[in-house]
């Protein structure tokens, strides 16, 4: 029991309210915490912008790497990242939206199934990203991919049972599933009950109401969720390390079972395995800056759309 829940009586008043002091010390201390965090953020962003802005040019964005990453650009990594998150979105958005609709429209929030699914969603959000990588390797590549090879192909070389963009994007879609669900649910909560009731009163079935009323109304929230998922997916490296990302490829991925280059993985390998870090540094900083701009841009769009959605909730 906290002090807040004790009943206030004349006798224990002094327990609750110690003699008057000004709040300057706690105010100052907690403000310092805010200042420190802001300062660190400023240093990180400043350092990356300072180190990277000179590298970024049209050529850098549009050409492949040269001389063992000491020259050229990062086009294949950008291409791979975009392809990866598009495939991921195709998988995760429908599943996430339907989960949110199920939780919000089909079951009572107190039912056992709902609670169980909620616990699963919360826990999925907390599974370490490297564990997703292990899972992708064991399940998607080993079990599904290996299984497909064994059943449909008679080749000594694996066709699906190897690291590939499809497995990496499916692994990421599980990782980002909670993001889409939470965001869609938030949007579903803003839809007034009246509109749904009106739809039912006109004789629409549940599925028709979902398709024609609920999903269109929740679209901003669904899009926000998709953007946040893309944002998260574009920055994760651990889940794709073993499931499809490659350090250098002379070609772009064109088939679902191709490997691909990715910006986050590119940064990791350049930063840790470069034979001469001073020579790769400009390109490294440039890549980090491009990745940061991409993620922040997506973040801003998501935050903007969400704040618009919240305003709607207040007005309705």
């Amino acid at each position: 029991m906290t002090t807040a829940t004790k009943p206030l009586t004349k006798d224990n008043l002094s327990e609750h309210f110690k003699p008057k002091t000004t709040g300057n010390i706690p105010r100052g201390l907690t403000f310092t915490a805010v200042l420190i965090v802001s300062a660190i953020l400023a240093v990180i962003l400043g350092n990356i912008i300072w180190g990277g802005y000179a590298t970024i040019s049209y050529d850098f964005l549009s050409s492949p790497p040269e001389n063992g990453m000491e020259g050229g650009g990062i086009f294949p990594a950008i291409f791979g990242t975009v392809a990866l998150v598009i495939l991921m979105s195709i998988a995760v958005v429908p599943i996430g939206v339907m989960t949110a609709i199920y939780l919000h429209e089909y079951t009572s929030p107190l039912s056992k199934t709902t609670r169980l699914i909620r616990v699963a969603i919360n826990n999925l959000a907390g599974v370490p990203s490297i564990v997703f990588g292990l899972f992708g390797l064991g399940f998607f590549i080993g079990f599904i991919g290996g299984g497909l090879d064994a059943i449909f192909y008679d080749s000594a070389r694996p066709i699906w049972g190897q690291p590939a963009i499809i497995w990496a994007s499916l692994t990421l879609s599980l990782l980002t599933l909670p993001v889409v669900i939470v965001s869609t649910e938030e949007a579903l909560r803003t839809i007034p009950e009246d509109i749904k009731n009106a739809s039912y009163a006109l004789g629409a079935t549940k599925l028709q109401t979902i398709r024609k009323i609920i999903i269109p109304q929740a679209l901003p929230g669904i899009l926000t969720g998709a953007i946040l998922a893309v944002n998260r997916g574009a920055g994760e490296v651990a889940p794709i390390m073993f499931t499809g990302a490659a350090y250098y490829l002379p070609y772009l991925p064109t088939k679902l079972n191709d490997q691909f280059m990715e910006m986050g993985y590119h940064i990791y390998v350049m930063a840790t395995q470069s034979p001469d870090i001073e020579k790769t540094k400009p390109i490294l900083y440039g890549t980090v800056l491009v990745l940061l701009i991409l993620t922040f841009l997506l973040n801003f769009i998501a935050i903007y759309m969400r704040s618009k959605l919240r305003r709607r909730k207040v007005s309705s």
Binding site: L45, S129, G235, V237, I267, Y268, L284, L291, T295
Partner: peptide, 18 residues
């Protein structure tokens, strides 16, 4: 500020620390 900080991919934080 906090949302920006949480938006930084962990590989970028790792890069900065390294």
């Amino acid at each position: 500020v906090i949302e920006l900080l949480s938006g930084i991919p962990s590989v970028v934080l790792g890069f900065f620390a390294l």
